[in-house]
Amino acid sequence: MTTYVLRRLLWVLPSLFVVFTLTFILVHATPGSPWDESDKPLPAAVKENLARQYHLDDPLPKQYIDYLANVLRGDFGPSYRSVERSVSEIIAATLPVSAQLGLASMLFAIVVGVPLGALAAVKHNTWIDYVSSLITVTGIATPPFVRVSLLIVFFSLVLGWLPTGGWEGIFDSRAIIPILAIGLGPAAILARYTRSSLLEVHGQDFIRTARAKGLTETAVVIRHAMKNALIPVVTVAGVTLANVITASFFVERIYSVPGIGRQFVDSVSGRDYPLLLGIVLVFALLISLVNLLVDLSYGFLDPRIRYR
């Protein structure tokens, strides 16, 4: 077990390295520079100095090695577009916001999605099942940017309950709309998977045994079926992280949340490569670690799975 975890942790490094290298190659192949201002071109001398300052005039392999060395030392370099803040400072300021938002959204998704899915499975093929399907599918059918726009119009303009945007911490009313907008997608996904894998285990022998013992349906679901049904659900919970990250791109932008997702979009559209590389590495690390946690949880849920 310990060796398995250690080995998996060791694998994170080459993964990050591959992500870093591929992204580096890609950003230098992408057309457009951070300084192609749309109408007024920069004087040649200024452009040269900018290139020199950011070492863009060095040969690519040298840039790559220098940058890699800096990153290994924990220095992501300056942001091209925000001269007053370094990449590390931007990430340090924005990552906690997105982390809070992401965790709250996941929590919301689990608290709403899993029970909703279980309910649908227990009442399989009844109107409750159909209504639950309808809710979850409608949740996933509206893309995040539509979802957040509709939520803003509804809660801020029609009802006048919530501010139209901004961020004052996770316990402020400004967090509600982004949490809903990000969390609804994963909630729908979790509900569907819970339903389908509960149905899957429903017909199996040990459930029938449990029923035969005279346990109530709820006890059967919670004590026996649920645990076995959780494997795909947990897997999805890991994968929904990607879903949460993607949704945060749109939601943070539209709701003016100063998070890392918004910085990611800006860094791509503004060609702020050091910032982009920094954020991509953060995402890669996060995804690798969460997937490791997910793999470990298989073992807890199903002792038959062994780690080699």
Partner: peptide, 8 residues
């Protein structure tokens, strides 16, 4: 999978 999930 990990790499592609994080990849821009």
């Amino acid at each position: 999978v990990d790499v592609l999930l994080a990849f821009p």
